[in-house]
């Protein structure tokens, strides 16, 4: 098969799918379709994690992103009743300029690679570091303090989201009184 191993085939297919779905996220007009394409992109990235033998991260990625964050996006979009008809569009010139700027940025990033030609090979097959046991030991020995700080951050975000999202009862009462 063209001298490629099965891992290289999988890498190529997953990369192609990830890029295609990511393009569809940007270019689909309907926001609901956009969310669904983003979920597919996340599954492709989880496949990449599996190829790199980062099994714990692959599972966490699917659970957190495809399971939690994207469901949140879908809820908000359906709450707001958005569809392709109400979708605001930027002017064609703005979109063209955005594409040109993106292409130039890509050229800069790929051009920066040109000096690093030695092509180091990632050998993921024998890698043990992505397993839950090793990752847990590193997380709770070296990164215990950042772990606790992350929990405080999540708590603060939870409280903040509830405070912001709560309907302001005082102003509503005032409106009723004024009317």
């Amino acid at each position: 098969m063209l001298g490629l191993t099965i891992t290289q085939w999988l890498f190529g297919i997953l990369s192609f799918l990830a890029i295609m779905f990511a393009l569809m996220v940007v270019f689909t007009r309907n926001p609901v379709n956009s969310v669904l394409y983003l979920v597919l992109t996340f599954f492709c990235i989880a496949g990449h994690y599996l190829l790199l033998n980062a099994q714990f991260l692959a599972v966490v990625h699917i659970v957190v992103y495809a399971g939690a964050i994207m469901v949140l996006f879908l809820f908000i979009i359906m709450l707001m009743n958005l569809n392709a008809d109400t979708e605001p569009r930027k002017h064609i010139v703005t979109r063209l300029i955005a594409g040109v700027i993106g292409g130039m940025l890509l050229i800069v990033m790929v051009g920066a690679l040109k000096g690093a030609e030695q092509l180091t090979i990632v050998r993921a097959g024998a890698s043990q570091i992505g397993l839950v046991k090793n990752l847990g030991q590193v997380l709770f020995h070296e990164f215990l303090f950042p772990f606790e700080v992350a929990s405080i951050l999540l708590l603060a975000a939870l409280v903040g989201a509830i405070m912001i999202g709560k309907r302001d009862t005082n102003t509503n009462d005032k409106k009723v009184i004024n009317n």
């Binding site: 191993t5 290289q8 940025l105 890509l106």
Partner: peptide, 21 residues
């Protein structure tokens, strides 16, 4: 299963640029 790290860098750059655009 050797994949050059450059391919990963390219893939990440492309995904990042799609996000920027």
């Amino acid at each position: 299963n050797g994949i050059p790290i450059n391919y990963y860098i390219m893939l990440s750059a492309v995904l990042f640029i799609i996000g920027v655009v």
